[in-house]
Amino acid sequence: MADITTSKPTTGGSSMNIGKILLEGRAFFALVAIIIVFSILSPVYFSVGNFLIMSSHVAIFGLLAIGMLLVILNGGIDLSVGSTLGLSGVVAGYLMQGVEIPAAGVILYPPVWAVVLLTICLGAFVGAINGVLIAFFNVPAFVATLGMLYVARGVALLMTNGLTYNNLGGDAALGNTGFDWLGFNRIGGVPIGVIVLALVALTVGLVLARTAFGRWLYASGGNERAAELSGVPTRKVKVSVYVLSGICAAIAGLVLSSQLTSAGPTAGTTYELTAIAAVVIGGAALTGGRGNVRGTMLGAFVIGFLSDGLVIIGVSAYWQTVFTGAVIVLAVLLNSLQYGRTGR
C-alpha cells in the first residue's frame, strides 16, 4: 500500500481527456443518444408533451432510485422498496375508502393531507425496521430487505384480499377530495409527480453535498471503521438511510396510485430492481461511498426514456426487457472501468 500513487494511472494527452469526459458523463451522453435515436425513428417522440408524459413515468422510478441511492452510498441495498410502494398505495387507498370504527359506529374519512402524512409515516416505519435489523442486529442488508420485500407485499395482499381499491377520487361531501391531484394535475404544464421528484431530488442533493449528514453518509459508505473512529454516528446514519428510502418509496406509492386513481396490492413488483439499475447507471458504486443525485436522475431518465421510446416505435415488450438488461450491464462495465481496481 506504500505506493498507492502508482497504482492509479493519471490521464494525459488530449485524446485521453475526451475519453475521460465521455466516460464520466456517460449517463448524460447515453440520454442524449437515446433522445436523438428515437427522435429520428419516431416523429412523435421529440415533443414537449411526450417528454412530460415520459417524465411522469420516470417520476416513480426516480423517487425509488433516490432512496436507493442513499442506501447504496452507505454500502447497503434495499430490496423492499417495490413492496413498500405497493403497500403504501394500498394503505392510502384503504384510508381514502374510510376507516370504520365499529365501537363508535362511525366511518372516518381522513382528509387527503392526513392520508399522505400517514402513508409517509408507514414508509418510514417499514424503513426503520430494515435499518434497525441491519444496523443493530447485524442482519445483512440483502437478507433483511429481502424479508421485508415478502412481508410488505404479503400485508398488502392481506389488506385487500388480492383486490384493487378503485375510485380514490374521494367525495366532496366527505371532504376528502383531491387525491388525484398528485397524479393528474399540472403546474405550469408540468405534472405534479415530476415536480415532486424534482423537489425530492433537490433536497436530497443538497443534503448530500452540504450537510454533516451527507458527509457522514459518504464517509461511512467509503470506510465505516474509519468513519466510526472519526466520531461519525455510523449506526444512526445506517438506520436513517433505510428510513429515507422507505419514505421515498411511500411517496412513489402515493404518486403512482394517484396517477392510476386506484391502488392494487401488486403495484411496484420488481420496481426495486429498476431503482437499483438507475443508481448503477448513474455511476454509483455498489460498494458504497461513490455516487450522486445527478447521476441517479440521469440513470432513471435513461431507463424511462429508453423503455418508453421502445414502446413508441412499437418494439415488443420482450425486447424492451432485453435492452434494459443490456444497458444495465454496460453501465456496470463502465463503472468498473472508471473506478478501476480501487473501485472494488
Binding site: 459508505g221 470506510n223 468513519a227 473512529l229 458504497g288 461511498g289 480501487t342
Partner: peptide
C-alpha cells in the same frame, strides 16, 4: 488503510471528517 482513511474521499474531506461540526 483499514481504520484511518476513507479511500473514496478527497484529502480535504478526510482531513475535515472528524471536525464537521
Amino acid at each position: 488503510q483499514r481504520d484511518g482513511l476513507v479511500q473514496t474521499m478527497t484529502v480535504g474531506q478526510n482531513l475535515s471528517l472528524a471536525s464537521i461540526g
